[in-house]
Design a protein around this nucleic acid. Structure first.
Ligand SMILES: [Mn+2]
Ligand SMILES: [Mn+2]
Ligand SMILES: [Mn+2]
Ligand SMILES: [Mn+2]
Lengths: 244, 244
DNA sequence: TCTTTAGATTAGGCACATCTAATTCAGAAA
DNA sequence: TTTCTGAATTAGATGTGCCTAATCTAAAGA
């Protein structure tokens, strides 16, 4: 007597904190540009060996969280995106909460949120969100997805890509370098500050910018490292440029 | 050329969340009575197999966190006690915070704290403590150890051990049965309520108690399951008993 | 004292997430 | 088209924490 049908064991999906971090990083990579992440880029961002990523990506695929053809880039499935957005919501709400309710500095929130995001319950997240008045963005200007996964990305451009004359508001600051955040805070370069690109020093040097508005302005030379961490939303359309 | 001295590799102690839970449970067992916990009692409380405990206790001993002779009870070392008290502080502060700041019910805080206690930083804990005004006990009446490990246990007795006539205040309610907590809250039996033992129903039946003071009192029959979850601090010394 | 037995420990394995080293592959360069 | 090369994958292993099954032991009972 042989079985005449195939027996399949459907693996119950356990979203470990490792899996949560993988999908979150895969998602984050495409948030501000549209190329999908590769195996080794993922390895660098997670701080693990390439081989660990290969192994794990196979498991993520098994669980229906990513699409992946060997030797090509890694993309989230619908389900993977849902999980990633849930984690991004958690992370950003936690960062916001830590600053507003527990007096953390904006350079201190990331690491704490990175661990807490895996430990708090949905109830905790929603209570926080209520208490904060359902904020739309985190302390670094990153948009906070709604509970249903809806997210609206502001129309911002990387400062380092802007031409002289451009004016706008700083709407996002990359949060992965705490030291940079401390530097910026010390210089009073904060979210929503008005900014104008004055020009670029020769031979690929620093970008010259003016921060502030009206009479209260200050000029800075920002090196590539900084200008590639700041996103600017234009206040005037392109036509308004004052080219010298 | 042979080495003429012994080379030892001292294991760097990594306090995993598993280790944290083991020492916490070992500590908790002796908080309200003085017998040390056995292997199988520990297994029940942690929800793991006996063999897992044997294995883990060996590792805890290796790390200097417990004293243990095979086939006998498990005791924390000085270092183990320090770690346990730190975890207890975390757990109880978190419970208090969840109730006071995020509107949790006292039956909902335990499970959330059980996970969060492993994920939050010391900074988080101390910020919470400040914000709460450095509370001395958690929502269930359990004392919160100070950052240095100091803890003062209230002089309370298990309700089920009290004789008729005893009066006092409820100062502690075991928090490991959420359903019981909901029942008590529904009956307005809360921390600091005045209580008087009226007597015991025959044949090992329920304990009859009076809750409240002055004109606002209510009588209850409390079954063993409940009376062994409530601790009472006497308001009148023993001499004041009214035996029938 | 000898036997029983409940509780504790060991043996042998598994799942997860990681590593280093060896191998394979896709696409660029010749 | 063939060769090369860096990226990606597989092979083989480790550490942690858990399991079931087998074995052992201390303390109680006959
Ligand atoms: Mn994380
Ligand atoms: Mn952020
Ligand atoms: Mn715990
Ligand atoms: Mn409690």
């Amino acid at each position: 007597m042989k079985p005449h049908g195939k027996v399949e064991f459907v693996k119950v999906v356990t979203k470990s904190s490792t899996v949560e971090d993988y999908v979150k990083v895969i998602y984050a990579f495409t948030e501000w540009q549209d190329k999908a992440i590769t195996s080794s880029q993922l390895a660098v961002r997670l701080g693990v060996a390439n081989s660990s990523v290969s192994e794990m990506v196979r498991k993520l695929k098994e669980q229906g969280l990513v699409h992946h053809q060997p030797y090509s880039a890694i993309k989230l499935t619908e389900r993977g995106t849902v999980l990633a957005l849930a984690m991004v919501r958690r992370h950003r709400l936690l960062e916001t909460y830590l600053m507003r309710e527990l007096g953390y500095g904006w350079d201190e929130v990331h690491d704490e949120a990175e661990l807490l995001e895996h430990a708090v319950s949905d109830k905790f997240i929603e209570r926080m969100s209520s208490k904060l008045g359902h904020p739309q963005r985190d302390p670094h200007g990153d948009p906070i997805p709604a509970p249903d996964g809806t997210i609206s990305l502001p129309d911002a451009t990387l400062l380092s890509l802007l031409d002289a004359g451009h004016r706008g508001k700083i709407t996002r600051i990359s949060d992965d370098n705490p030291e940079l955040l401390r530097y910026l805070a010390h210089q009073d370069i904060t979210l929503d500050a008005d900014i104008e690109v004055l020009g670029q020093r020769p031979f690929g040097g620093s970008l010259m910018v003016r921060i502030g508005s009206g009479t209260d302005t200050a000029d800075f030379d920002v090196p590539e490292e900084v200008s590639s961490a700041l996103w600017v939303e234009s206040t005037h359309p392109h036509a308004d440029c004052t080219l010298t």
